[in-house]
Design a protein around this nucleic acid. Sequence first.
RNA 1: GCCCCGCUAGCUCAGUGGAUAGAGCAUCUGCCUUCUAAGCAGAGGGUCGGGGGUUCGAAUCCCUCGCGGGGCGCCA
Length: 548
Amino acid sequence: MTETSVMGIRSRIGEALIDAIRNLGVEGDLPDLELGRAKGPDHGDYASPVGMKLARVLRQPPAQIASRIAETIDVPDGAATAEAVGGYVNFRLTAEWLQRLVAQVDARGQGYGATDLGHGERMQVEFGSINPTGPMHIGHGRGVVLGDSMCRLLEFTGHAVQREYYVNDQNTQARRFGLSVMARMRGEEPPEGGYTGAYVTELAELARGELGDIGSLPSDEAEAKVRQFAIGVMVERIRASVARLNVPYDEWFPESRLWLEGLPQLAIERLRESGHLEERDGALWFGEGDEEEDRVVIRSTGEPTYFASDLGYLLSRFERRHFNRVVEVWAADHHGYVNRMKSAAAALGIDPERLVIILHQLVNLKEGKMSKRAGRFVELDELIDRVGKDAVRYFYLLRSPDTAIEFDLELALTQGNENPVFYAQYAHARLVNVEVTAGERHATLPERADVSLLVQPWELDVARQLAFWPEVVEDSTKLLEPHRIPYYVHDLATAVHRFYHAGNETSEYRVVVDDPELTRARLELCRASRHTLKAALELIGVTAPERM
RNA sequence: GCCCCGCUAGCUCAGUGGAUAGAGCAUCUGCCUUCUAAGCAGAGGGUCGGGGGUUCGAAUCCCUCGCGGGGCGCCA
């Protein structure tokens, strides 16, 4: 098997398909051949409706085109056979190739499926950056898990990724938060629009102990001190929560640092010179002079808005820190901000394509909308306490970002016990157990496996799933859609469970049998699937237990 | 009013314009003396929200209507 096989079998069949078409004399651009997984076993493993696609160009019946392609196509390494059915060409992976794949996957270990797609591209993913004015709730957990899983995918595919949390430590919300805590310290109600959750009162208690008497200070000094303290405590709590989800942020970047570095100021200067800013009603606006679209950068009071910070933040990341691309993960309630950020980037001379914004729909409580200010939410920590880190991550990732989640805590708790994550973890633990048993029953086993002994359909089905892994990684990465991974994990786990179970029904199909050669071959399959299962679980931040 | 997302099995959700639309849960029926039953095998369950259109081909693309969620601030 050649080295190119690491690119994934789908791509290789795709290339062979194009070669075959060229050999028919077709030149110029080709339509999308829609080579993809076949529907069912009757149609093989991959299929392309290539006959229909080329019928017009070649002015021949689809079936005839498909036949000619099926006859002439040369799939490398004899990886697949081609068969024309109507205008389709169906590809079936050969047993010989699947067997060799097993040995190759075992050799590559958890690196199987990893690529250099990104060529070391410097990327930042900024996610989970909630205002540190309260604990993380179950809505925020979604963005955190999504963002971190994207990072894992990007790292696996050769990107240099930095995980960043943007800490809003000096905006209006932060000030309101500080004022709310201060009010509670004095035994007063928080101001209008302030934060009323019970944690605010607890924070006031803490602050009283830590800061002592602030009554003697001028009120703005006192506010700054309390705010700084309260934000600091909240950031630590958030840090602890995300750590429980196994999310390793590289940078906690405070908004205030932008101003210390003079970046918003610089951005404003530049935009002013390029004519993107306009004074109106005593405030400074960004935009095209459209009353509806334009946004305030500096208020008439002279105070900057968050947007001013964001302008500086763009410079910080694209110019100062030289990220080639920045991915931002936002909840859908920020969607109105997407175009503004893109046009801001463009106005600053940054290609908006380099700013990738991923939106995910909201997580709502069954009882209604969550609200930090009103103190109505389910904390992320509580969910982790109740169902565990792995189930939480899996739960979020089983949904496409476009699907809104209506969260029912009671239901989540019952489902925690039968969470699909255990199905996958169990498959992994079983494989480990089999390998241990093999070591106990056989003092010595052949060093190399004779993979041609893997002939049972359920054995080849496991190998088939392994063959699909590279394309799953590729698609998930290119589309930035980590939710594809848990679905693959499930399919692989199913194949593994069936393979295992064959030995429960008939003992000669067990992995560990008297024949050392046969045992060794099946062990190779166990290892290959264990590596892949573990790699896949790691990409979504779920542990692969050795025992359950 | 304008913008974004969704509507697929009883429930929760997958589904790069391709063939007979899938999974989990729930329901029902089988399978443990022997590598882990947190498992396996099987059954039932669908006008892919409605209606138009494009296409050889539409759950998928376009238009339109309905329902649900979210957003349209000198808040973030």
